[in-house]
Design a protein around this nucleic acid. Sequence first.
DNA 1: GCCGTTTTCGGCCCGACTGTTTTCAGTCG
Length: 601
Amino acid sequence: MTNAEIAGVFEEIADLLEFKGENAFRIRAYRNAARTVEGMVESLAGVRADAGRKLTEFDGIGSDLATKIETLLDGLPLKMLEDLRKAVPASAFDIMRVPGLGPKKARLLVEQLGIDSLDALEAACQAGRVRSLKGFGGKTEAAILENVGFAKNPENRRMLWYDADLLVQRLLEHMRGCAAVVRIEAAGSWRRGKQTVGDLDLVVESGTPQSGDVAMVMDHFGAFPDVQSVMLRGDTKMSVRLTGDVQVDLRVVRGASFGAALQYFTGSKEHNVVLRGRARDRGLSINEYGVFPITDGETATSARDRTPEHGATEEEVYAAVGLPWIPPELREGREEIEWAEEGRLPTLVSVEDIRGDLHMHTHATDGEESLADMAAAAIARGLEYIAITDHGQRVRMAHGLDASRLLRQWEEIDRLNEKLREQAREEGRKTPRLVVLKGIEVDMLEKGGLDLPDEVLEQGDWIVASLHYGQNQPREQITKRILEAIENPNIRVIGHPTGRLINRRPAYDVDMEAVIDAAASTGTFLEINANPMRLDLDDVHAAAARRAGVKLVISTDAHSIQGLDLMRCGVIQARRAGLQAADVANTLTLKSLQKLIASSR
DNA sequence: GCCGTTTTCGGCCCGACTGTTTTCAGTCG
């Protein structure tokens, strides 16, 4: 069983226990373990096979879960899981997808009314049978009717970060038009740069509820053109649903609490749990209003009205528990607290560090623009070098280049570079504004080998190897194809190394540990493809590559001029992996990059 | 179910909002 499958089992157990109303901390233990396993790159099977190591060395894995992992690795069934599955109907999870229905209410619906589907739930509401249950009433019944459609819609997946970002920018612009908004920031998983985003969170600084400022802010929020319905509205908190079923939560706080609220709503939940545990050890309590000493008799509402000592900025909140500010992209409850504690927080790579873009297409294959237009667009974006990497001939659909077409394109690139050098001389510059590298994205073929011969490839400057066909092959074959390319001295980088398309296609089955090891020993780079649907390598694998000493290359894989602007999507993924500029090859000057390549080959 | 320099039991983060409650449970993030 793979790590991902084991993580899936623990998640399922947590879901089932939740429905059964089990101890919340026991449920959390399973979810923590699932997260730990999901975030590992080395295989649990490998760790188990190593006599010098124990499964319990990982955070959140104790003796019980270690035994369960061993059972799963042996391919044996887990009795506990089988019993739980028997005890909980599958429809329970559909019912819990209805906003407002959690495990307790779902259980009542199943056990008291025999609800076994969302359709049955809808019918029961319409017949007025739900309101008679204890804890339910007319309003709850109406709310279920209104929300059941949301649960039924299979298209309600998490948004790509890029799509969330477009929406966030529109929301911020709209809200800044409100006079009562002093400051506004978007928080949540958008701010952490997660590859997909569920809800959006906005934190606003404004006056007190009594002054009427909060009402002004909320009215303005409700007037955002996409708002379809207001889900809830209280003194400090309001939630709306936008067209497309996107939920946006708004929190309004005073300036003295703005940093604490921003920290709180940025999450992640796991990061905050660790942070609060730390505060507790110091006799402090952190909430969305600030950091307070723990005193007896403090009520929930008192924090809102008291002025916190530490809460105006995020830096204050972290400082109060003895830590430096932690970049949002790292706040996943992984190693970031440990790093912060030991003063080892990385200085994360930024878009400004990027000097070159080493994967893009032109209309010679499936791109939209000419070579000259892509080069001009790169100059306009301040890039110092680019590689033109159209498809090799295997990608027939894209009219991939055979050797003679490729060599003609490379001659064209030579002429373009000459023109750029000429321009530089005219402008009195020592170096041209842009250097264009002669590249190609060759295909790693189904039966092994590449779709262009080495005699051609060795004449190029920058060869990307990608896998587009035969993605369903078994793990051994896929891994073999990639390892073979890595061993080829002409190959500089493996493009989108897992092939996954978020929300559309899973990664192909590849032994990424072996790929990373081979890349490390040959000096081959691995790509972080910045396309918002790819983000491949992802944060977990990119972090593993970094630990192994592999250099990453962040590339847009642009098929148009606008495609060049996606670099920031790749950079934010790299930041989540804890990458510094030194870990990313295309932050180097071209000269240094070429030196690095020469030294590794 | 995990964890431990107050260590093998008793903790485990914290608050807003809603609805159905006469004081709180459930849900959510």
